[in-house]
Simulated assay, not measured.
Amino acid sequence: MNQIQQVGQVQMVPVNKIEVINSRERNSRVFNDIVVNIKTIGLKKPIKVTKRLASDGTEKYLLVCGEGRLKAFKSLGEANIPALVVDVSDEDAFIMSLAENIARRTCRPLELLTGIRQLQERGYTPKSIAEKTGLNPHYLTGILSLLHQGEERLVVAVEKGLIPLNAALTIVGAGDDDAAVQAALQDAYESGKLRGRALMDARRVIDRRKTLGRSASRVMSRKTSDVTPSSLVRTYQNEVARQKAMVRKAEFAHQRLMFVVGALKQLLADENFVNLLRAEGLATLPKYLAERVWSGGNSV
């Protein structure tokens, strides 16, 4: 990367002359907080831009850092914004913007994680990317591996903490072998990385990956003309299989509930057992169970 030279003072730059080179979607609540904060106490930190010449010979600026603050100024109707002007190339401006966005986020959205791959495609090594973004080199290597294999759904799950990175890589290595995927989950469970709700979340992610595909995008990437009768049949069969699995789980849960209700009815018919419950202060049941065990209340 070229040596960056910063101008010694902040300049007031017209907001309509600033071009965003690495735009990203923002949480509306967080953005509204930025707007209110700037409106109340002003801009605490100037944005960062680099100067360019437009095709008509006039001055324009490329945004390096501060898209949220820039949008907030625009929404407040401001014509100018304080900006620190740096002298960098187009590529360096893009890299600086991308690296800063990635490094800033605690839980990085997929679009920023994909930016890691863009950095690698521009010739940056995983080590240099880790240095620029502040990410752990081991984590970075694993994420790059998942991204290169199109495993967007697993990448998002790893970022949200639903699946450990090592387990995600093992799942990818298992390919379409369900037994190997389940073995990866079992290993994560036995090692203590996936327990309780985390294990349920991981299974849900894997089921969605199998049914909906590896991409996390909600928009179909294929054109309508690519839809074939066989793909429709496959989609229908997958949905039928999913619905059948849900029915089986519901039936199993219902059977267990009926067993519990039956057992409680038999136990509560024993006066000695009821007296023991009262003596121990256990004379009530959750409303859901009480309504099924007896009528007229939820205590013995």
Rank of each mutant, 00 (worst) to 15 (best):
M1W: 05
I4N: 03
Q6P: 06
Q9M: 13
Q9C: 11
Q11A: 15
K17E: 14
I18T: 07
E19A: 14
V20M: 02
I21P: 07
N22I: 07
S23F: 03
S23N: 14
E25K: 13
E25P: 07
V35G: 00
I38N: 08
T40Y: 02
I41E: 14
K44P: 13
K44V: 15
K48P: 00
V49F: 01
V49N: 06
G68Y: 00
L70T: 10
F73D: 07
S75T: 09
L76G: 03
L76F: 00
L76Y: 00
G77D: 05
E78W: 09
E78A: 08
P82G: 04
V88I: 08
D92G: 04
I95M: 11
N101W: 00
N101K: 10
N101I: 02
I102D: 07
A103I: 08
P109H: 05
L110P: 04
L110C: 10
E111L: 11
T114V: 12
L119G: 09
L119T: 12
R122A: 11
S128Y: 09
N136L: 04
N136A: 06
P137C: 01
L140G: 07
L140N: 07
L140K: 08
I143P: 01
L147S: 10
V155K: 02
E159I: 08
K160F: 05
I163W: 00
L165Y: 04
A168E: 07
L169D: 03
L169I: 09
T170F: 03
G173W: 01
A174V: 11
D176A: 13
D177K: 11
A183N: 11
G192A: 07
L194S: 09
R197Y: 05
A198F: 02
D207T: 13
L212T: 05
G213M: 05
S215F: 03
A216P: 07
S217R: 09
R222F: 08
T224E: 10
P229E: 01
S230I: 12
S231Y: 01
V233E: 13
R234G: 12
R234Y: 08
Y236R: 15
Q237V: 15
E239Y: 09
A241M: 12
A241C: 06
Q243F: 14
V247H: 10
K249C: 05
H254D: 08
Q255M: 07
F259V: 12
F259D: 13
V260T: 14
A263K: 15
Q266S: 11
L267G: 09
E271F: 06
F273V: 15
G281F: 09
L285N: 06
P286N: 04
A290C: 10
N298V: 13
